[in-house]
Simulated scan of single mutants.
Amino acid sequence: MSAVYALRHNVFVVEQGVPEEIEVDEDDMVATHLAAVSDGHVIGTLRILLHGRTAKIGRMAVSASSRTEGIGRELMESAATTASSRGAEEIILGAQLTAYGFYKRLGYMEEGAVFDDGGTPHVMMRKKLQL
């Protein structure tokens, strides 16, 4: 987990300017964390929180040097499989506007207005899982 937190700190706090005090929160204690590992290094991560039949994906981060290698897509596909196996029927997430197209290509649909999270504009997105 220390490597997951280090990657998230680098991506969110250092690169994006998210306040350090909100990057790690109480949800980390109950979330399922996925990590992509290459040569012993965590190069991607996300967390999954289950709320009944809905899974919420958050804290998706991929190292700058790995962002064009499909790691994010693989993490999202693994998250959908994991969520479905645990009874989730849909996934929701708060997408940074800069990542909107990425999630749209994966089948997520926008819902609601743009909102601020950690100083970055986001929009909620949802995808029904194939059962």
Rank of each mutant, 00 (worst) to 15 (best):
Leu97Ser: 08
Ser66Cys: 14
Gly94Met: 09
Arg53Asn: 14
Tyr108Ile: 00
Gly101Leu: 12
Ile91Arg: 07
Gly52Leu: 04
Gly94Ala: 14
Gln16Arg: 06
Gln96Tyr: 00
Tyr108Pro: 04
His122Asn: 10
Glu110Asn: 12
Pro121Thr: 01
Ala35Pro: 03
Val37Asp: 08
Val11Ala: 05
Arg59Leu: 06
Met29Gln: 13
Thr120Leu: 14
His41Pro: 00
Leu93Pro: 05
Asp28Ala: 04
Arg73Ile: 00
Thr45Tyr: 01
Pro19Lys: 03
Leu49Gln: 12
Ser66Tyr: 13
Val18Phe: 09
Glu69Gln: 15
Arg73Met: 00
Arg86Lys: 14
Asp117Lys: 03
Lys127Asp: 04
Gly72Cys: 05
Glu110Gly: 13
Ser65Tyr: 00
Gln130Leu: 14
Leu131Ala: 13
Ile22Asp: 00
Thr45Ile: 09
Val37Thr: 04
Glu21Asn: 14
Pro121Ile: 01
His122Lys: 07
Val42Tyr: 04
Asp25Glu: 08
Thr120His: 10
Val11Met: 08
Val114Asn: 11
Arg47Trp: 03
Val62Thr: 08
Thr54Met: 14
Gly52Cys: 04
Gly112Val: 06
Tyr108Trp: 15
Leu75Asp: 06
Thr54Phe: 11
Arg105Pro: 00
Met29Thr: 13
Gly119Ala: 07
Arg67Ser: 03
Gly118Leu: 08
Arg53Phe: 14
Glu110Lys: 15
Asp28Gln: 07
Leu75Gly: 02
Asp117Thr: 08
Ala83Val: 02
Gly101Cys: 07
Thr68Met: 09
Val30Ala: 10
Ile43Lys: 00
Arg126Trp: 11
Val30Asp: 11
Thr54Pro: 08
Glu74Val: 11
Ala113Tyr: 09
Tyr5Val: 02
Met125Lys: 03
Glu21Val: 11
Glu77Gly: 01
Val14Asp: 07
Met109Phe: 13
Gly87Pro: 08
Glu69Gly: 02
Ile92His: 12
Ser2Gln: 14
Val114Ile: 12
Leu46Arg: 02
His9Cys: 05
Ala6Asp: 12
Ala61Asp: 05
Glu89Ile: 06
Val13Ile: 11
Val18Trp: 03
Leu97His: 12
Asp117His: 11
Asp117Gly: 03
Arg53Pro: 11
Lys128Ala: 15
Ile92Ala: 12
Ala36Arg: 04
His51Arg: 13
Asp25Phe: 03
Glu110Val: 13
His51Val: 06
Ser63Tyr: 02
Gly94Trp: 06
Thr98Leu: 12
Ala79Asn: 05
Ser38Leu: 10
Val4Met: 08
Phe115Ile: 08
Met1Gly: 11
Tyr100Ile: 07
Ala83Ile: 01
Arg73Ser: 10
Val123Arg: 15
Gly70Cys: 01
Gly87Asn: 09
Asp27Gly: 10
Glu20Arg: 02
Ser63Pro: 04
Ala3His: 09
His33Lys: 00
Glu20Cys: 01
Thr45Gly: 01
Ile43Gln: 04
Gly72Ile: 10
Arg47Asp: 01
Ile71Phe: 03
Arg67Trp: 02
Ala61Val: 07
Val62Leu: 03
Ile71Asn: 01
Ala83His: 07
His51Pro: 00
Val18Lys: 02
Val30Thr: 14
Pro19His: 06
Tyr108Met: 01
Gly44Asp: 05
Asp25Met: 02
Arg59Thr: 09
Glu111Asn: 10
Glu110Ala: 15
Leu50Met: 15
Ser65Leu: 06
Thr68Cys: 10
Met125Asp: 08
Ser38Thr: 08
Gly112Cys: 10
Ala83Leu: 02
Leu34Thr: 09
Glu111Thr: 10
Thr81Val: 13
Ser66Trp: 11
